Simulated assay, not measured.
Amino acid sequence: MPTLTGQTIAEAQGAVRALLDRTLAGSGLTSNEYVALRVADARRVDDLAGFLAGQRQLGLGPAGAAELVDGLRKRGLLCEDAITPAGTELFAQVDARVNATTARLYDAMDADDLATAQRVLTDVIARAAELSRAGS
């Protein structure tokens, strides 16, 4: 029996997502909106809604992703698929809170263990993608 299972990964993802939701409370952003602004802030994506729909961990299909992006546009946080100055300001404020929470989450963990976890999870992602492409 493997010591690392899909159940463990799913529970960890759920716990971190719940922590993110708690950190975002009162900010005016949902976790998916925060992710969308993070993507728009970090890089130019020609089709932000399409990119977000392809991120399975967000649980958005094409219609949900389009609705999310449209909502951010209507609030003046995105223009086309680029972050606006208002979006940049809100994102910076919220991101500082998220970074502080993230630091507290990982602070008590051994740096070598975190590096190992990062390598293992990166390998899990790559291997899952390989198996998906192979039709397994």
Rank of each mutant, 00 (worst) to 15 (best):
M1W: 09
M1P: 08
P2S: 15
P2D: 14
T3E: 05
L4I: 15
L4A: 10
L4E: 07
T5V: 08
G6E: 11
T8P: 00
I9K: 01
I9P: 01
A10R: 09
A10C: 00
E11G: 02
E11C: 02
A12N: 14
Q13N: 11
Q13K: 12
G14A: 07
G14E: 10
A15G: 13
A15K: 12
R17C: 03
L19Y: 01
L19E: 12
L20S: 07
R22L: 07
R22K: 14
T23M: 02
L24P: 07
A25E: 13
G26F: 09
S27H: 02
G28N: 10
L29Y: 08
T30C: 01
T30I: 03
N32M: 08
N32G: 03
N32H: 11
Y34K: 09
L37N: 01
D41H: 09
D41S: 10
D41P: 01
A42S: 10
R44Q: 11
R44V: 15
V45H: 07
D46S: 08
A49S: 11
G50K: 13
L52A: 12
L52C: 07
A53R: 03
G54S: 06
G54Y: 05
Q55I: 05
Q55M: 09
Q57W: 00
L58I: 15
L58T: 14
P62D: 15
P62H: 15
G64V: 08
A65P: 08
A66R: 15
E67I: 09
L68P: 02
L68C: 06
D70H: 12
G71L: 10
G71D: 07
G71K: 04
L72V: 04
L72R: 05
R73P: 02
R73L: 10
R75C: 06
R75V: 08
G76H: 09
L78A: 02
C79K: 09
C79I: 14
D81T: 14
D81A: 11
A82C: 03
A82I: 11
A82F: 00
I83D: 00
I83W: 01
I83N: 02
A86T: 13
G87W: 04
G87Y: 10
T88A: 12
E89T: 10
L90F: 05
A92D: 15
A92Q: 15
A92H: 11
A92R: 14
Q93R: 14
Q93E: 13
Q93I: 15
V94W: 02
D95L: 05
D95W: 06
A96M: 02
A96H: 04
R97D: 13
N99S: 13
A100N: 07
T101H: 00
T102I: 10
R104V: 01
R104G: 04
L105V: 14
Y106T: 12
Y106S: 04
D110Q: 01
A111M: 04
D112Y: 01
D112G: 07
D112W: 03
D112A: 05
D112H: 10
D113I: 00
L114C: 06
T116I: 01
T116R: 09
V120C: 00
L121Y: 13
D123N: 12
V124F: 14
V124A: 03
R127E: 15
R127T: 15
A129V: 03
A129F: 00
A129H: 04
A129K: 13
E130C: 05
L131P: 03
L131D: 13
R133N: 07
A134F: 13
G135D: 09
S136R: 13
S136T: 06
